[in-house]
């Protein structure tokens, strides 16, 4: 009797459990990972510390500043957008580990603006967000390959590609510096090879090309680079590297009294960041620069004015620079993507 009762109880429990499982398997409203009735969770990896973090470590604060503003004004259809930020120190293996954490542990809906060509590539191969259906929105690199929807189906570029930048630089050189000796400093990886491809298409011939290994861009190394440019008698020197490389170059050039016509790539061309490392502003004077977004000091521009006002309130005392503007612009575009994805956004929609 007792045994029978126990069996009935067991059966009942089993049935209940099965029903429970079945119920939970039915997609509820907003069943997408990282999306709840009240919030949407996004994740970001980038260098917050280490050599390459210079300037870029302001991006999360900038993106959060915009999301906070958005959340205070109704969010995305009532859902508040939160951003989980992880430091990868610009090391691809760490980007892989941190991205795994974001997807598996923090369960973010999408990755937002991960930074660095090598890092995004490593993540694409090792974590494979495409296979998991995880969107990688607006990667913070201009490597042309990421625009390839077949190879990286869930990855979206936002910055113009390094090839485009090199081509436009090449055009400018042809129109303004014809017959001059051109020197190029570039990073010895995909970031740099994209640049080389662009310059080749544009038909630029270099008197001297100086590659540097990512992570080696110190002032001591820059002294060697400058010695090379000097020996080749370059009239125009293009700095196509990260901010820390530009800073090391310009700072050391000031010490060595080296003054060619500088041309700065947009990646490492943010004036605020460069000046922060102690490079005198005068060194930058008359350098040629490139940007897809308005000048950060142009307060007649409605976006610049709008973003800088929000940023000044959110992060008082921090200068509004190109990294901040791009960070907020990316957050703004992500917000539109989420809004356009309908009342119950999913990774697919």
């Amino acid at each position: 009797m007792k045994a029978l009762q126990r069996r009935t109880l067991l059966t009942a429990t089993a049935v209940l459990a099965t029903v429970g499982l079945a119920v939970s398997a039915i997609p509820a409203q907003a069943a997408e990972v990282g999306v709840t009735a009240t919030g949407i969770k996004l994740g970001m990896t980038l260098p917050m510390t280490g050599t390459a973090s210079l300037g870029y470590n302001k991006i999360p604060g900038a993106a959060k500043a915009y999301f906070d503003y958005l959340n205070a004004n109704g969010g995305i259809n009532g859902r508040k957008v939160t951003l989980v930020v992880k430091d990868d120190r610009y090391v691809p293996t760490e980007a892989v580990a941190k991205t795994n954490e974001l997807i598996l542990k923090d369960k973010v809906m999408a990755l937002l603006a991960p930074l660095g060509t090598a890092n995004v590539k490593a993540v694409a191969t090792s974590v494979n967000p495409a296979r998991r259906g995880v969107p990688v929105l607006f990667v913070n690199t201009g490597f042309s390959g990421f625009a390839d929807a077949k190879k990286y189906p869930t990855t979206y570029a936002v910055l113009p590609s390094y090839i485009m930048e090199a081509k436009i630089m090449g055009q400018y050189i042809k129109e303004n510096f014809a017959g001059k000796k051109i020197g190029l400093l570039y990073q010895d990886d995909d970031f740099g090879s994209d640049a080389l491809a662009g310059f080749k298409t544009a038909g630029v011939n270099f008197a001297v090309k100086v590659p540097y290994a990512s992570g080696s861009q110190g002032a001591a190394a820059a002294a060697g680079w400058i010695t090379k440019f000097k020996a080749a008698e370059a009239d125009v020197v293009i700095l196509f590297g990260v901010s820390s490389a530009t800073s090391a170059m310009l700072g050391t050039a000031a010490q060595l009294g080296y003054k060619p016509q500088w041309m700065l790539g947009s990646v490492g061309g943010d004036a605020t960041t460069i000046k922060l490392t102690g490079v005198p502003a005068g060194v930058l004077y008359n350098a040629i620069g490139f940007s897809p977004v308005p000048a950060t000091t142009d307060m007649t521009d409605e976006y610049v004015k709008f973003f800088s006002d929000i940023y000044a309130k959110a992060v008082p005392g921090s200068a509004f620079d190109l990294n901040v503007l791009l960070g907020m612009n990316t957050a703004f575009m992500a917000a539109q993507a989420l809004k356009a994805a309908g009342p119950n956004p999913t990774r697919k929609s």
Binding site: F138, F146, A147, D148, A149, Y152, T155, Y156, A157, V158, L159, P160, S161, M164, E165, I168, Y172, L264, S266, G269, A271, I274, K275, A281, G282, L284, Y285, N286, A287, I288, G289, F290, S291, P292, A295, T296, T297, D298
Partner: peptide, 23 residues
């Protein structure tokens, strides 16, 4: 649908004596 290319260009500027980039 077939391309995930982002922005497609740049404006050219010069850095002012203050160090800021202006068109």
């Amino acid at each position: 649908k077939t391309s995930h290319v982002g922005l497609t260009g740049y404006w050219v500027g010069k850095y002012a004596p203050t160090g800021d980039l202006a068109p």
